[in-house]
Amino acid sequence: MVKKLVLLFVLSSFAMTAQKKNDSKSKTYVSRKETYQIKYNLDHWIKSEEPSTNWDAEFHDKYNVVNAYFSEYDYFITDKSLKSTIEEQYKDVGEIKNLKIFKKKINGITVNYFTCDLEYNDYLYKYQGFTCNGKGGSIQIQYGGQAEAIELNQSSIDELNNSISAIIN
């Protein structure tokens, strides 16, 4: 009986150590209005410590070939204005092509997901992301990079998308 208890104690210690290891590989970003959080995997994503003036938070993959941008707005982006809002965001970079917008569920949140292409300096870039309206306005996250980078890192993009959740107050 004592041997079984010791074995049980040792096994539970290993399980607790494994849980601590998994927890140490993730970090949580909380939006400025504290309405959403992103629990991102440190093995796949790095948060920039100095975000640009246009975004609340910026991330890039560990290879630095895919960028992710997150913003929380003080207004709502309507379904009717979504296409023009996206086109406006890219107007200084180039003309977007193949813009597709569709409804999708991510972590129980219904979002307007978009994908598009942009040709710039003879390179094809792909962007994707989503907007959704929440308690305090809209949020948007978008990913961008050369077409090859987006295609090769789609699983990491899906992982970050699925790490976003609403904070219920």
Rank of each mutant, 00 (worst) to 15 (best):
A147G: 04
E49G: 10
Q146I: 03
R32W: 11
G137Y: 04
M1T: 14
Q142W: 14
K25T: 09
N112I: 02
W45H: 01
T35Y: 10
N112E: 13
D56G: 04
K47E: 15
D117L: 05
E72D: 06
D61N: 02
I96A: 05
T110G: 07
I150V: 03
F59D: 05
I101N: 01
L7E: 12
I101A: 03
V111C: 06
A15C: 11
I167C: 03
D43G: 11
S12Y: 14
L82F: 10
T78W: 11
L99V: 03
F114W: 06
T17V: 12
N67L: 11
H60Q: 06
S24G: 05
F59H: 00
M1S: 15
S155Y: 13
N169L: 13
L5Y: 14
T28F: 08
T35F: 09
N133T: 01
F102P: 06
M1V: 12
T53P: 05
Y73W: 07
L42A: 07
G145L: 03
K97H: 12
E58Y: 01
P51Y: 04
D74P: 07
Y75P: 00
I101G: 02
D92W: 07
E151G: 01
F14R: 02
D74K: 09
D117I: 02
N22R: 15
S24L: 09
Q128T: 07
Y113S: 09
F14A: 03
N54A: 10
Q19N: 14
